[in-house]
């Protein structure tokens, strides 16, 4: 084509490869950015690898926290103890979401007959958000079985879980409530104008939008729950933190704790990335284009 139009190839718009000036510029920019990022990462990594072992005391730090031998003997034990953490999380999380939703809905209902429930819901969130998780666990986990309950109703698993559910539901309820309140009044007007009752409006219009909006903060709370499950170790169950503590004492070495930390990270980092992906997918699905 260029040959048929005299002087076309001399125009600044395209070069020999057929790319526009803009495309050529952006290509150069991308290459340059990649080169700079790679170089700086390599430099920093090299400095860490070279300098850190030369610091005074590194040998002690390494022996105490990163002992390969201790790690390889304790890590499998830690992993199997971690199954308990996952189990406790797995039955607590649905209970927390359900109870949190219930409390949030009770707080936003305006019917006068339900006023006692509103009052209860408000008091509940105030109380349990105001108490440290660990205190709730000690109080419920030691306190309730201490009333003289028989097996299996005195299980620390049971009461530890109850404590977590009580505490986290309060946080999750507030997240749901914020979501419910973020749905614009015009959505309610739209639904009510069609003759939907206030319950139907809540169920079909407000809650679905509220829940979608709060998925990221909700997942924050669940990741946080995944970690706080370890606090149950204080009332007895041998889960990963407790197991790491036992191994720490046995080998007089902190490596098992580092191993436990590693296990938590292996779970929580993919969890958060998965949530990011979910949110991005939802946005793509309903808007067509991703807004950067």
């Amino acid at each position: 084509m260029n040959a048929t139009v005299p002087g076309m190839s001399d125009l600044p718009g395209t070069d020999a490869s057929g790319r526009t000036r803009r495309q050529e510029f952006e290509r150069r920019q991308r290459r340059r950015a990649l080169a700079v990022a790679t170089t700086s990462t390599l430099v920093v990594a090299a400095l860490v690898v070279i300098l850190v072992p030369r610091t005074p005391g590194w040998y002690k730090v390494k022996r105490s926290f990163f002992d390969v031998e201790v790690f390889s003997t304790t890590f499998p034990r830690l992993l199997s103890a971690f199954v308990k953490d996952v189990q406790i999380f797995a039955w607590c999380a649905p209970c927390i979401l359900a109870l949190g939703m219930l409390i949030a809905v009770l707080r936003s209902v305006r019917a006068p007959a339900l006023f006692p429930f509103r009052l209860f819901a408000a008091a509940y969130t105030d109380v349990f958000r105001g108490i440290p998780v660990i205190l709730t666990i000690l109080l419920v986990g030691f306190g309730v079985p201490g009333l003289g309950l028989d097996r299996p109703y005195n299980s620390p698993y049971l009461w530890g879980s109850v404590a977590l559910v009580l505490n986290y539901s309060a946080y999750v309820a507030e997240v749901f409530r914020a979501g419910i309140e973020s749905v614009h009044e015009s959505q309610r007007a739209g639904a009510r104008s069609l003759g939907l009752s206030s319950a139907s409006t809540l169920r079909h219009v407000v809650l679905p939008q509220a829940v979608r909006r709060v998925i990221p903060p909700l997942m924050n709370d669940l990741v946080s729950l995944q970690k706080d499950v370890a606090l149950i170790s204080l009332i007895g169950p041998i889960e990963v933190l407790r197991q790491a503590g036992i191994d720490k004492s046995k080998y007089a070495n902190f490596t098992p704790y580092v191993g436990a930390a590693l296990i938590f990270l292996l779970l929580t980092i993919p969890e958060t990335r998965f949530v990011d992906w979910l949110v991005a997918r939802e946005r793509r699905r309903t808007t067509g284009t991703a807004v950067r």
Partner: peptide
């Protein structure tokens, strides 16, 4: 309504 008030979800 002026602003449609469709249900975006």
């Amino acid at each position: 309504f002026q602003s449609f008030n469709l249900f975006p979800h």
